[in-house]
């Protein structure tokens, strides 16, 4: 029987939740920004410094 198993499981669970949360957050935020840029592009709005 592993001593203090509950503490080990809790520490690894919190770490997995926070790190996976960070990964999901950056991927979801990236998709949101790409969609917003695509929407503006569709409406014909161009950046001043955009490559031609």
């Amino acid at each position: 029987m592993i001593s203090h198993l509950g503490f080990i499981v809790a520490a690894y669970s919190v770490t997995a939740a926070v790190l996976l949360g960070l990964v999901v957050w950056v991927i979801a935020d990236g998709r949101t920004q790409k969609a917003a840029l695509a929407e503006l592009d569709r409406r014909g709005v161009r950046r001043s410094a955009a490559p031609r």
Binding site: I27, D29, R47, S48
Partner: peptide, 21 residues
């Protein structure tokens, strides 16, 4: 995570600039 978040921030600023324009 940092490089991905930097990419997102650059896109966010582009979106903001284009909306202002």
């Amino acid at each position: 995570l940092h490089v991905a978040a930097m990419r997102n921030e650059i896109m966010r600023r582009r979106v903001r600039a284009m909306r202002v324009k």
